[in-house]
């Protein structure tokens, strides 16, 4: 009977967010291209958003604050993706590769 009302408990959301964070960190460590690392970063963003939303739903007095916070996280993530993809395209144009192992020099 406890499993039926699992979606009304805060623990399952926090555990799911922890799983998402672990998967994102695994991808960030294992991916060998910049776009794959960017996707893993988005998964970590999603984990943070889910955590904020769970705490907002169950432990916060004002439920609009967390929703607005997550909306701002989404906006910042969109901006970050735009900047990161333009950097990736510029790197690909200069190096003909976006493997992070080959990007070994930083010159202006």
């Amino acid at each position: 009977m406890n499993l039926l009302y699992l979606h009304d408990r805060p623990g399952i959301y926090l555990v799911l967010a922890a799983c998402l964070l672990a998967i994102g960190i695994f991808g960030l460590l294992r991916r060998r291209t910049l776009i794959g690392m960017l996707i893993s970063g988005e998964i970590i963003f999603a984990a943070a958003s889910l955590n904020v939303m769970a705490v907002n739903r169950f432990f916060a007095p004002d439920p609009t604050a967390g929703q607005i916070f997550v909306l701002f996280i989404m906006g910042l993530a969109a901006a970050e993706v735009a900047i990161a993809l333009s950097i990736i395209i510029a790197v690909y144009r200069n190096y003909r590769s976006i493997a992070p192992q080959e990007l070994t020099e930083l010159k202006g």
Binding site: R32, T33, I35, G36, E42, V81, L85, I88, Y92
Partner: peptide
């Protein structure tokens, strides 16, 4: 928005695992 933008990035570069 985000996934479509990443798809554009995939099209403009060569992102498969080396």
């Amino acid at each position: 928005a985000v996934c479509v933008t990443i798809v554009f990035g995939v099209m403009l570069s060569e992102p498969d695992e080396p």
